[in-house]
Design a protein around this nucleic acid. Structure first.
Lengths: 231, 231
DNA sequence: GTTAGTTTGTTAACAAATTCACAATTATAC
DNA sequence: GTATAATTGTGAATTTGTTAACAAACTAAC
């Protein structure tokens, strides 16, 4: 079937296509879209091939039906719910973005162990006690659980979410949680990502000192060459 | 050169190795470490091979020197700084985690366009006006810039960061920013990630309805055809 | 010191993802 | 209507990342 990367890109395509449509554009060619997202035109065409949506040679892709095709592919026919565990700064950021903002996919409930937070409403989303997890997940028919707690309890929370019936977990804790194979798990590890960026940033600097610039693909001789050809 | 994925995993290894060391463990074997992180033992050995650190057959890897080797590889010899642009919920979450908590790598300054925030201190990190970006980046010798603003200004901020001399950018905005080849850019797209998890969660559900389950041991039916890699 | 039983390091095979290259197709100009 | 130029769709090649398999290396037991 379709790969994770393709699904992610389809989500990106949709966002810029919506923007383009709002600006009055009706068609788009693979290389223009590729340019906006900094991927290759071939990649765009391949992804749309997976979608089953065909463009027309010499014209490109018609944005409106393409958007419908993406929505048809990515979105659930009925609205989908998610729940959030952990209302720290990160949890609030997620609520601000995903609590009820989208029609088809939204965070509909939140949980925290802090008694002061239970019963409160954050960005339109009510906070419940962990003991109500299963009940609320059943009531809201949520299929995704988001773990946004600092660390230790993550596996425990994950188990409870699985127990309650979610089919997907988005884990922001630094612990790798384990779920049964019929549950999709995605880890977003901010520390590791931050360290990675710093690592490669430093390497760039290193090559600068050596007189060589590092690119994604390898080393090149002259820095000014890239600087000028780039923009 | 070493791949991004390897760098990310080294960061993960380090975290659990530190934990193990704190618990009094002195050596670890590839398959035990692999079990903790849900990767294969071969992967672990391969990553350590890249490091240049050798274990001993029948014993495993000595945790203390391994940790030093990872630190030596991942960390800068001198402390490194990063700056944050955008003090919303997400920015606060990042500050809470990375403002001065680590010795070698920390967020040392923050920026926002809100006049009420400028001059304030958040999690020990002072907020400056965007006009001071270049000056502060130079003073703190920052090589990483983190973009945590909602959307539109992202490319502009990115350009300013590059102009000011950063070599790595961690971008949380939904816009894909473009930087010269000598700057490493990492996109963390929360919307796309959220949609991806929901998508695959739904597929899992779909197969449940079809009567096909993925199990611990493998697939009962042919879910394999349609479900791609879980991790 | 020898043997048995593990685990490492690494080569080779495999798998996934991306890009190349080009035939097929279409609009436009004339 | 035909020629021209441009763009799509996709098999093949390439690149990148992962896993299997096994020789070499080591410990421990005797």
């Amino acid at each position: 079937m379709v790969s994770e990367k393709t699904v992610e890109r389809l989500s990106l395509y949709r966002r810029v296509l919506q923007q383009l449509w709002a600006e009055g554009k009706e068609t788009i060619m693979s290389h223009d879209l590729a340019g906006l997202l900094h991927v290759t035109p071939t990649q765009v065409r391949r992804d749309f091939m997976q979608l089953g949506y065909s463009g027309v040679p010499n014209i490109g892709y018609k944005i409106r039906p393409l958007l419908e095709s993406i929505a048809n592919f990515l979105d659930s026919p009925s609205p989908q719910s998610a729940v959030l565990v952990g209302i720290g700064h990160l949890g609030l950021a997620l609520l601000a973005n995903f609590a009820g903002r989208w029609r088809q996919l939204a965070i509909r409930a939140a949980f925290d162990k802090d008694p002061n937070k239970i019963g409160q409403t954050y960005h339109g989303c009510r906070c419940y006690a962990m003991s109500e997890l299963k009940k609320v997940i059943n009531e809201t028919n949520s299929i995704v659980g988001i773990i946004a707690i600092p660390g230790d309890g993550a596996q425990n929370v994950c188990d409870q979410l699985v127990q309650a019936g979610v089919r997907g977990i988005l884990n922001f804790s630094p612990l790798r949680v384990k779920a049964p194979d019929y549950v999709f798990v995605e880890h977003v590890d901010l520390s590791a990502t931050f360290e990675k960026v710093a690592f490669f940033a430093r390497k760039m600097k290193y090559y600068e000192q050596e007189g060589n610039w590092k690119t994604e693909s390898g080393l090149i001789e002259d820095a000014n060459e890239t600087l000028t050809t780039n923009q």
